[in-house]
Simulated assay, not measured.
Amino acid sequence: MKSIKLTLDRTIYWIVLSVIGLAYVAFLSNMPNEWFRDRYYYVIYASFSDQIIDAYKEQSILALFFNEPIFLYFNYYLEKVFDPEFIPHIFVGFITSVFFIFLGRNSRNFLIFIPGLFLCLIMPYVLQGELVAIRQGFATSVFILSFFILKDDKKILAVLFLCSLFHSVFFIFTVFYFLNFFVLKSFSFNKKLVVHFFVMLAFASIAVLAAKFFGLRQGEGYEKIEDLGVGGGAFLVFLIVFIYLYFFGNRENRKMYEFAMMGLVMFLTSYFISPIAGRLFNTVIPFVIFLLVSRSRAIVFVMIFFLIMVFLFLFINGSYTDLFAISVSPEEFRNYWKSLISL
């Protein structure tokens, strides 16, 4: 009888989530391309991917290999079916669907799911992966699918490598995943964290030079911003999250726990010394949120509401304007919302 009740409760849970999920995905994936910075470049990729591929081939096969060939070929074939202007919306729809489904799957119950979802709607690292850095967001979604569906770490590692051909930042995750789940497999968790700290410290120090050496187009972009000053607010917030998860995090899913903690170490270690830190964290943050919502205790709600208050304050004070290409007026946003409701 108890099992029947649990099955019924879970069925109702997913029915409710399906309704919310449709609204969530529709809301984010239908936002105009013109609102967001870099979206224009995704339209260009979709329109001229064959020419971009040929340009890299003229340089060398190695240049093509290190500049996301799967992403380019993916756009090449999508453009044969869809209008280039619509292709970014396809990516966003897939990304938001995967994020939402696995947030629901990892949430202990509906009470913890709701604040977790709200956190996703106001946290810049999540929004960046869903709406702006959609090439990385798509690769992150593919990795999330493999991480929770595949049981063999070798297969997950293979998917990570393929993701690196969609976005070059996954070359780094491939190395660290191999290090954590293969090379350091017999090491204690604390020793793994120490090794990750020193390896990331060394890598972050040469990240820009390494990107330029291998011909990654991001190398020049990172070089332009590496001298910019970095505030310590995000570092302090996620140091608190790291300490909380270290002592109170849910370790039932060892693999998810270790990957989230490994990612936090990578982010915190490189935060002040490399511009790649934020880019890495766009892939790590979904796992951190999945880990947070996997328990439903008072202390978990305290931590999530602490994060909500921090990022809601930043959101209200306009700290996310760099995500947008233009200033979106309240009237434009209301009109967009009304157009969705009228569908």
Results as ranks from 00 to 15, higher is better:
289 I>T: 01
204 A>W: 00
275 P>W: 14
264 L>V: 10
144 I>N: 01
49 S>Y: 08
43 V>A: 04
13 Y>I: 04
270 S>W: 07
134 I>Y: 12
168 S>Q: 14
342 S>F: 05
239 L>H: 00
261 M>W: 05
321 T>L: 12
17 L>A: 13
330 P>S: 09
234 A>P: 00
329 S>D: 00
255 K>L: 10
301 F>Y: 15
56 Y>H: 15
276 I>R: 03
243 I>T: 15
172 I>N: 12
184 L>C: 07
156 I>H: 06
208 V>D: 02
266 M>H: 08
268 L>S: 09
299 I>G: 02
79 E>D: 11
48 F>A: 02
340 L>V: 12
283 T>W: 01
276 I>V: 15
70 I>E: 09
307 L>C: 07
203 F>Y: 15
86 F>T: 10
278 G>P: 00
265 V>D: 03
176 F>H: 02
342 S>C: 04
103 L>A: 00
295 R>N: 07
341 I>N: 08
267 F>D: 01
185 K>H: 01
118 F>K: 06
173 F>W: 09
60 S>R: 10
144 I>L: 08
44 I>T: 10
290 F>Q: 06
95 I>F: 11
76 Y>N: 04
321 T>M: 13
335 N>A: 08
317 N>P: 11
141 S>T: 08
309 M>W: 05
252 E>M: 02
76 Y>D: 00
235 F>P: 04
343 L>I: 05
260 A>W: 07
337 W>F: 12
186 S>R: 14
24 Y>M: 13
77 Y>T: 06
134 I>L: 11
279 R>W: 08
169 V>D: 04
12 I>E: 07
3 S>I: 12
116 G>W: 03
162 L>D: 07
101 I>L: 11
318 G>P: 15
280 L>F: 11
155 K>V: 06
39 R>K: 09
195 V>H: 10
310 V>T: 11
113 F>M: 07
78 L>W: 05
77 Y>M: 05
124 P>C: 01
25 V>R: 02
169 V>T: 14
